[in-house]
Design a protein around this nucleic acid. Structure first.
Lengths: 254, 254
DNA sequence: CGGAGGCTTGAGCCCTTTCAATGTCTGTGG
DNA sequence: CCACAGACATTGAAAGGGCTCAAGCCTCCG
């Protein structure tokens, strides 16, 4: 129904909060994307060297991070299938980030120049990418508040809530169980905590009956309670959910 | 040399990391902007009610913030003269933020529809606004790392470094002295600390000979040392400084 | 002059970190 | 099939950075 297949999720994500035309879609699918498998831990982009290509995730998860001079790491955001990874460095070389794969997966890449041509001819697509940048900034803002003003339990709970909702737009299972693609150490780097403390917090959330967690798999037992503990308000995620919760899993019929 | 005068700084900021044409400029200055004075503490935008207008700062400072359920506040960013305040809600209603004035000042406002028309006709301006969103996201990312992984002293020092550099592109004085338009309580809300602790940290930076501070006025005695204490790397601010440090204060001759 | 908001200072507590050791799982190679 | 390495998870004890609470002070402004 769509194009070659592996671009579907990327297009769906791009189109999620937008209203792109068939002409836009055809032009997008006509781009000379290349696709390649990537390993867990593989670096996609480094802060110093700006790449000439633009990347989007076909499958798997990635994260952006900053490494401070003392060696500590802070994770800034987690990218899911369908997300473009480095549009910022596309329009503004110099704001490149460190981006790495969290899991093995597959990446689609497109040359910057080809993408620039597309944007010049399809302003609605440019608008959609801008909108994604804005949503990303909105998520960043929520993370600032999360790390700056919430205690450890609320921080972890908040991150889990965000995952649960964002995953819904990408995966099938809607029963509250999902795999967290991060180690406890990475959860710590995302919440500004310590791996040790994240461990204790997860146990506490467990004992409180809010979640149940095995190896890398978390079941949310009580979404209401978890959201309350996290002071979670989904609106910062943009319209991902409002429009996406059902429609994103089922490709839009043409 | 430019247009009516009060839009100059806004145009300069927009054009800073871009390369806009004379046609773009003329169209921009032809927009039906309205200008009005605002008081310190005045709310520009609320998280719930999306406005129909788009705002930019002519003079004065503003900040975006989130208020958590327990009443604590987190400041997400500080806006300086020339900055657009709510382009995010322009392209994506639903990601509105709380924005308030930090100082008295003057605001320029333009209706969303007029701005949309401009962007449709002048894609380079749209690109410039997108780029500003990307720079904002870059600053957000640096704040996440700042709050998540640095100790109190480095956090405050980092914020002061950011101010010093950003102010250079907007004000004249370049001797290391500038007025911080925030109370210690607001500095605390921006760094995820407590007003009491910010006070102690400022004294410590004082004693270390890095800064000297009177009432709301800070002199940076040792920018090198302060940047070292802050683990500060200016690149995340985009090209604000590379191109702006001298040229922004002096309007570009046509 | 009085009040309000902001700044300063001290003392004690608590959440989170640090350090260190042990346990568990997975993949690899002999 | 077992031994081993390495990464990750778990647990305990102790230390510390930043918070809370509380009081006093200063400055601005009506």
């Amino acid at each position: 129904m769509f194009g070659t297949g592996y671009l579907d999720q990327i297009w769906t994500t791009l189109n999620r909060a937008s209203d792109l035309s068939e002409g836009d879609r055809d032009a997008f699918f006509a781009l000379p994307f290349r696709s390649r498998p990537v390993e867990a831990g593989e670096a996609i982009e480094r802060e110093d060297a700006a790449p000439h290509d633009c990347f989007a995730i076909v499958t798997g998860f990635a994260y952006s991070s900053k490494v401070l001079r003392d060696g500590s790491r802070q994770i800034l955001s987690v990218h899911m299938p369908g997300d473009f990874l480095n549009t910022a460095s596309l329009i503004h070389p110099g704001t490149a980030q460190d981006i790495q794969m969290l899991t093995p997966g597959r990446l689609a890449s497109i040359s910057s120049t080809a993408l620039h041509h597309l944007l010049a001819q399809h302003p609605r697509i440019e608008r959609a990418l801008w909108r994604q940048t804005a949503i990303e900034a909105s998520i960043f803002g929520e993370w600032i508040a999360n790390i700056g003003r919430r205690d450890a339990q609320a921080r972890v709970a908040h991150l889990l809530c965000e995952f649960a909702l964002r995953l819904r737009t990408v995966e099938d299972g809607d029963d509250g169980t999902f795999d967290v693609p991060m180690t406890q150490g990475q959860l710590a780097d995302a919440t500004g905590l310590t791996a040790v403390h994240v461990n204790r917090v997860l146990q506490k959330l467990n004992r409180a009956g809010l979640i149940r967690c095995n190896v890398k798999s978390v079941t949310i037992e009580d979404m209401q309670g978890l959201a309350a503990a996290a002071d979670f308000d989904e609106r910062y995620l943009g319209e991902r959910l409002v429009r996406g919760s059902r429609t994103a899993a089922t490709p839009i019929p043409t």
